[in-house]
Design a protein around this nucleic acid. Structure first.
Length: 481
DNA sequence: CTAGGGCTATCC
DNA sequence: GGATAGCCCTAG
């Protein structure tokens, strides 16, 4: 299945009241893009929603919030107060719940260690972590103090009653969902609705057809019926889509339409046998139903989404014909007003192409069999471009509309003398070995033997501060020389 | 990751 | 300037 369609479907069903087991099965079988921050965020939010569905919060939410914060940071988005508040509230809730019962004091101790000492303290060393707040540090002090003083315990319990972790998380989820925006399929459906309204006003489309199309989209994933008309349309669109398959992302080297998971659409394509083997492994009634629904949703979507390519081609053609008329007046700019493409011709002359995609494509298609880039060119020499443009008269005469840039001069360089980048590593400041370090090294060698520098280093890393296992080896060489 | 050669800063 | 300690680089 096409990665984009898989992504759209997942994004669409994310917020549907689908059972987690079915949803997890979907995740398992659909090809997922490796880097899709939007989908990842939506997945995290769904996971968080699942976690709080029983009316309480869990420590897993802390992890989800941390991942969410990382995604925000990667995108340069600032974390919100709602996120900080949710993180703090969950951390407090997951700790203080053990204070209510005195017999659970051990569990409270463990929770403080796990959540506040390990998870939260490590964030103190990093600046601008989006889930931490002043409030969080205040709570940490209170919670740690409650470890030793009963009076502080009461205080912590009282204060924690004033906050509701579940509510805080819900507020965050709502806000985060708004940030992400509606699923792509819903946006498409809405756009189509609006488009149809305009067309209806202009009398460009008959009512019956419009009703059918809107219905087919609005029922995607719910209703399993599909008219013959839609099926035909879907086939046409599917064929058209394949024409510009180059714009689609694929995973690995699998042919189009084949994925590691279950193949859902386009069963006439190659690779069907391989996917069928896996399909057979995943036959449960629920998964079958979900697969069937997805198949139909996908087909209906293809039928409903208008392929922009024919219109774009028409527009391009119109622009090109206009451009041809006016090209005489604008020699340095191409028909579409875009900057000219720079191409290097067979003589090594850099030329500006008009940016005409057709010209380029024809050029490529008509070219003699393209040699492999790995094959050695017998006429090739080792040259480097000299960027200086001090000899402007050297440019070859313009031919037709082509705009010619001056020929770059070539300078012969020896292939043996490649320019190398010198590593700019700063040498560490020399630090004398202390007696304690030497003694630790000796005892380490005695215990683990010569050569196990990593092991010796790891078991005494607090003593060997600023050293490396190699330093230990060097020092031992020095001690024994 | 380790071993071993080589480089450099520091000490005398 | 030689000796040495500490550090770096790289092959295996």
């Amino acid at each position: 299945m096409d990665m984009d369609i898989s992504r759209w479907i997942l994004e669409f069903v994310l917020w549907k009241p689908l059972e987690d087991t079915i949803f997890n099965a979907l995740i398992g079988v659909l090809p997922l893009p490796n880097e899709d921050s939007r989908l990842k965020k939506a997945l995290i939010l769904r996971k968080i929603q699942s976690e709080i569905s029983n009316g309480s919060v869990s420590e897993k939410i802390l992890e989800f919030l941390e991942v969410m914060e990382e995604l925000y940071t990667q995108e340069g988005i600032e974390s919100s107060e709602a996120m900080k508040a949710a993180y703090c509230a969950v951390a407090v809730d997951c700790t203080v719940r053990f204070l209510n019962n005195k017999s659970e004091k051990v569990n409270y101790f463990e929770a403080v260690k796990r959540i506040w000492k390990q998870r939260i303290n490590k964030m103190e060393k990093v600046e601008n972590v989006g889930v931490v707040s002043e409030e969080l540090w205040k709570w940490r002090d209170e919670i740690e103090a409650a470890l030793w003083e009963d009076r502080r315990c009461e205080n912590v319990i009282m204060r924690s009653k004033s906050i509701s972790a579940v509510v805080a998380v819900k507020v965050f989820v709502t806000e985060a969902k708004e940030r992400i925006g509606p699923p792509f399929l819903e946006v498409v459906a809405e756009t189509l609705r609006r488009d149809d309204a305009v067309k209806a006003y202009l009398g460009l489309e008959n009512k019956e057809e419009r009703g059918e199309r809107i219905e087919s989209l609005s029922i995607a994933g719910q209703d399993l019926t599909c008219s013959n008309h839609d099926k035909e349309a879907s086939k046409r669109n599917a064929l058209r889509r394949r024409k510009h398959v180059a714009f689609k992302r694929t995973r690995g080297t699998a042919p189009a339409g084949v994925c590691k998971g279950v193949k859902i659409a386009d069963s006439a394509e190659p690779g069907v046998e391989a996917s069928r083997v896996q399909e057979d492994l995943l036959h449960t009634p629920k998964i079958d139903i979900a697969q069937e629904a997805l198949k139909l949703s996908s087909l209906e979507l293809r039928a409903g989404v208008k392929d922009p390519l024919p219109e774009a081609l028409e527009l391009a053609e119109a622009l090109m014909s206009l451009g041809r008329d006016s090209s005489a007046q604008q020699p340095a700019e191409n028909e579409n007003g875009r900057a000219p493409h720079l191409v290097v011709d067979s003589n090594g002359v850099v030329q500006a192409n008009g940016g005409n995609e057709d010209d380029q494509l024809i050029g490529l298609q008509n070219a003699a069999p393209k040699p492999s880039i790995m094959a050695r060119n017998s006429t090739a020499h080792t040259f480097e471009w000299n960027d200086s443009i001090d000899n402007l008269s050297e440019g070859s005469p313009s031919s037709g509309r082509r705009f010619t840039l001056p020929t770059p001069r070539r300078t012969k360089v020896s292939p043996l003398k490649k320019y190398g980048f010198k590593k700019v590593t700063k040498r560490r400041k020399s630090k004398r070995w202390s007696t304690i370090e030497e003694e630790t090294l000796r005892s380490g060698v005695q215990k683990y033997g010569v050569g196990n520098w990593r092991l010796i280093f790891d078991t005494n890393h607090e003593i060997f501060e600023d050293r490396t296992p190699v330093d230990l080896k060097d020092k031992w060489r020095n001690l024994t020389s």
